[in-house]
Amino acid sequence: MAFRSVLSVTGADHSDQDVRTAASLCAEVGAYLSVLVMSPPPLAVSPPPLGDGIPEWPGQRAHAIAALEKRYRQIERFSQDMANLEKTSREIHKLLRATWRCYDVDTEHCDKAGVGDAVRQRALCTDLTIIGPALLTTLVSGLLLSIGSLFDTGKPVLVVPEGAEPTLSPRRVLVGWDSRVEASRSVREALDLLSGAEEVRVALVDPEATCSGSGAEPGADIAAYLTRHGARVLVDRLPSAGKPVPTVLAQHAIDTSANMIVMGAYGSRRLRERLFGGVTRWIVGKPPLPLFLAR
C-alpha cells in the first residue's frame, strides 16, 4: 500500500533525531506527518489533592508534613513535565515549518500503562508508524509503543535503529517468509516498497521443516505473487544450522546488501514483546538496517 499518513512518536526529553528521520521519509513519498510527543520516562501521574490540613499530634504531624512534601514534589514534577512537553512541541513545530509543512504535532501526558493506548489511538488512522533510534533507547517505552501502534491495530511499523539509513524507496529488500498469515500481511503492507525495489530476496529458513502450503518449491508461491505486482524476486532457501531464525535473516540481509528487512510479527502479546526486543537487539548489534514489521 502507499504511505500517505505517517506517525512519529518521540519523548519530550529526546532529541529531534526521530522527527527529522520521519520528516525526511515523508518528504520522500509526499506523506502527511503526525508527531506525538510523550511525557519523559518515568511517566508522572496527575498531581494528587493536598488534603485537609496538618494534624495537631506530633507523630501524625511529622507524617502529614512528609506526605505534603511528597505531594508538592509530585506537583512540581508534573508542572515540569508539562512545561517540557510544550517546549518540545514548539521546537518540533519550528523544525517542521522549515523542513516539511504537511504535519501536525500533538502532546500526551500519561502513566506507563496508558502509553500503548495513546499511541494505538493515533496509529489507527495512519498508514505507518516510525519508531526511531531515540525511542529505541527507552526499552520499556519502546515495547509499550510497539504493542500500541503495531500489534493492537494491525498497522505496520518501521523500526529505525541508530546509524541506519532509512528510505521508503529501498533498492534491495530482504523478506523473511514462512507462509504464515503474518508474513503475508507484512508483504501486503510493504507491496509498494517491494514492487519499486531493484531486487527483492525472499528468504526461507529451513523451509522443508518449517513451512507448509508453499508448493513443490518453497517460496515459489509468494515469488509469483510479488512478480505479478512488478517486483524483481529471487528466492533464497537458508539452513539455520542451529541458529535462531532472526540471526540467520539478519546475516543474510548483510551478505546481500539489503537496505531493509520485511517480516511478520507473530504469537501472543508476550511473545511479540520478546520478538520486538529480540529483533531490536540483533539489528542494533549488526550493521544497522531498518526493519518493516506487520501483523
Rank of each mutant, 00 (worst) to 15 (best):
R71G: 11
T88W: 05
V37N: 13
W100P: 01
P47N: 12
P55F: 02
W57Y: 07
R71M: 15
P58Y: 03
G59R: 06
D52V: 06
H63G: 01
M82R: 12
D104M: 11
A123Q: 15
V119K: 05
D104K: 15
V119H: 05
S79F: 06
W57V: 04
L124M: 03
L36Q: 12
W100K: 06
D117M: 05
T107Y: 06
N84A: 02
K112S: 11
L95S: 03
T88D: 07
C102H: 11
R120D: 00
Q80R: 14
P41I: 14
E108Y: 00
A118I: 02
I130V: 13
S39H: 01
P42G: 11
H109Y: 08
I54Q: 10
I75A: 15
E69K: 12
P40A: 08
A67D: 09
Q60G: 02
P49E: 13
T129W: 08
R77A: 15
I65H: 12
E69D: 14
S89T: 15
R73D: 06
A118M: 04
D52R: 06
L36S: 12
H63A: 02
I54E: 10
L95M: 06
P41N: 13
T88R: 14
V105H: 09
L95R: 03
W57T: 08
T126R: 09
L43D: 03
E91M: 07
G116Y: 04
M82P: 01
R101L: 00
T99G: 04
L128I: 12
C110E: 05
A44V: 15
D117L: 01
A98Q: 14
G59T: 09
S89P: 11
D104F: 07
T126I: 02
N84K: 00
E56W: 05
C125A: 10
Q80K: 15
A123S: 15
V119N: 04
P48K: 03
D81I: 03
R120P: 01
A98P: 05
P42T: 11
A67L: 00
Q60V: 01
P49F: 14
V37W: 11
W100Q: 07
E76Y: 14
C110F: 04
Q74K: 13
K94C: 07
A67C: 00
I92N: 06
L68M: 05
L36A: 12
D104A: 13
P55C: 00
V105G: 09
L43T: 13
G51T: 12
S39Q: 07
F78E: 03
G116K: 08
I65K: 13
V115H: 02
W100G: 06
T99F: 05
P49Y: 09
A123N: 14
F78C: 03
Q121H: 10
P41Q: 13
R90C: 07
E86H: 12
E86G: 12
D127Y: 10
L50Y: 10
Y103F: 15
M82T: 13
F78L: 00
D127L: 10
A62G: 08
T107I: 14
M38Q: 09
L68W: 02
L50T: 04
E86I: 13
R120W: 04
L96W: 00
Y72N: 11
N84Y: 00
I92E: 02
P58A: 02
R77I: 09
I54M: 02
R90H: 09
Q74W: 15
A62Q: 10
Q60E: 02
P47F: 01
